[in-house]
Design a protein around this nucleic acid. Structure first.
Lengths: 272, 272
DNA sequence: GGGTATTTGTCCGTATGTATT
DNA sequence: AAATACATACGGACAAATACC
């Protein structure tokens, strides 16, 4: 094989990982030991390890060593649920995080979210397109960090036309969680009934701030889901755009269409 | 700032890319030129470029140079459509690829797929769980490469209980596309009506063979969607598991819930 | 086809910095 | 404070891929 040496070394280590000879969490031999082992230079060993790192098989910790990556037990979120019951900016919402684990019995998971950070912005790009507003039109932006069991889960920003405030929905621009949900609130105040929504699911590399919040590596090797949810009222007009960002390494999504039986405890998440 | 030099260089180049000073597709200065420019060693320049590469901002081509990465115009696939109309193993199917582009007028996109590759396998892992078969139970596997406009689009494998063949659905184990769709075929032959399905959407790093097929870099920096679609018959029994793999760098998905107006030509895909 | 220049890829050895125990 | 382990940075040599004449 005409493969470079660092790839051959990586391949050898990889087999040890995937055969289970090296268990998740276990420490690999140090770079200097591997240098002896494979009669290569330390830099070549490091290239091999970098390769495995970018494949997500190992991770390095300065001062400690190199370790076999542990699988993360994923959060599973259902995207299809009755749009009239959804709560609005938590529309990829708490109740929709399925409360089981992929392996064994599920301990309950408790999501939480501090009050949103509000801004008055000018619609641009995706926001103006989805809300069908002219470029530069004023919009209310409500941004929230969301956690599950104290671990960072998602970053969410909802956009509403500023006109909603003048029409009477003044709590939209107050920095509190709207407990009954914005969908209910807007229905009560403005008579806007959310009759449906459309999600657009994309993946991209995280921004620096996102990597920081989610504790992701600063290089882009772990991506993030970016889900654009556009919600519509009874006239077919977009009433809200919610953009939510989730790390791909610990999130999965479920979509149900037609008649689907309840999940049994095993069927939830894929680990293959 | 205590930032390492290669990161500072990367940051400098990054600004040139993101400000548009360096346009997509354009060639960067060579490593030797950048070495002069930043008074660093060539290896340090290479570290900076590796960093940008893993962020997806540039790509290197041996013998040619380093180039600003071009955005790929994404394929957009709708996951929610009438389960009774879906065709089965092409259930993330041709007709569901929205025929527009993110920018400007859409030329039509023509998907194609060679005949499936058949195998008789023993259910294991996700297959046995989702189909609710005992581990090791025989299943028919139908594997297909799928293209759009000659570019690799997805790899799809559908699993059916082997019993379906004995019960009369013998074409399930023949290496032909079932033109009318497997859903229709199974309904006609076995009276199995597909009344719904559940999709589980995950992201992982591609296997070597997948990276090869999709022309992805061999390291894992571009992930793949892996979508498990479990389809149910009128009794609530799983009748099919279809696993489809799509590169994350050129695919987006749409989920519609409730009443959702038709897409206008701009609203399709996100490029932000 | 062949040869040459250009450009990135691989590999080495060494030195020093930084994080952790 | 010392030892250990990974991170950064340098410089050099040759290989491999590509483009061009």
């Amino acid at each position: 094989m005409g493969n470079p040496m660092y790839r051959q070394i990586a391949e050898d280590l990889r087999e040890q990982v995937e055969s289970g000879k090296l268990r998740p969490g276990q420490q690999l031999r140090t770079e200097l030991e591997l240098r002896e082992r494979y009669s290569a230079s330390r830099n070549t060993i490091r290239d091999a390890i970098k390769w495995l790192t970018s494949l997500g098989l190992v991770e390095t910790r300065p001062g400690q060593g190199t370790f076999v990556a542990k699988k993360i037990d994923p959060f599973v979120t259902t995207l299809t649920d009755d749009p009239k019951k959804a709560r609005g900016e938590q529309e990829v919402m708490y109740g929709e995080v399925d409360k089981y684990l992929s392996e064994g019995a599920g301990r309950p998971r408790t999501p939480s979210s501090p009050p949103p950070q509000l801004e008055l912005q000018n619609a641009s790009g995706e926001v103006s397109v989805q809300l069908r507003l002219p470029e530069g039109a004023p919009v209310i932006s409500r941004h929230q960090k969301r956690y599950i069991d104290e671990t960072p889960w998602s970053l969410q920003t909802s956009f509403y036309p500023r006109g909603f405030v003048a029409q009477g929905a003044d709590r939209l621009f107050e920095a509190d969680n709207i407990e009954e949900g914005t969908v209910r609130y807007l229905a009560d105040k403005l008579g806007l009934r959310q009759v449906g929504y459309r999600d657009l699911i994309t993946v991209r590399t995280p921004e620096a701030a996102e990597a920081l919040f989610f504790n992701l590596p600063q290089d882009g090797r772990v991506g993030v889901f970016e889900i654009f949810r556009t919600a519509f009222d009874q006239t077919g007009t977009p009433m809200r755009l919610t953009v939510t960002v989730f790390p791909t390494d610990r999130n999965q999504f479920i979509v149900k269409v037609g008649e689907v039986p309840e999940l049994s405890s095993d069927e939830g998440s894929a680990t293959s």
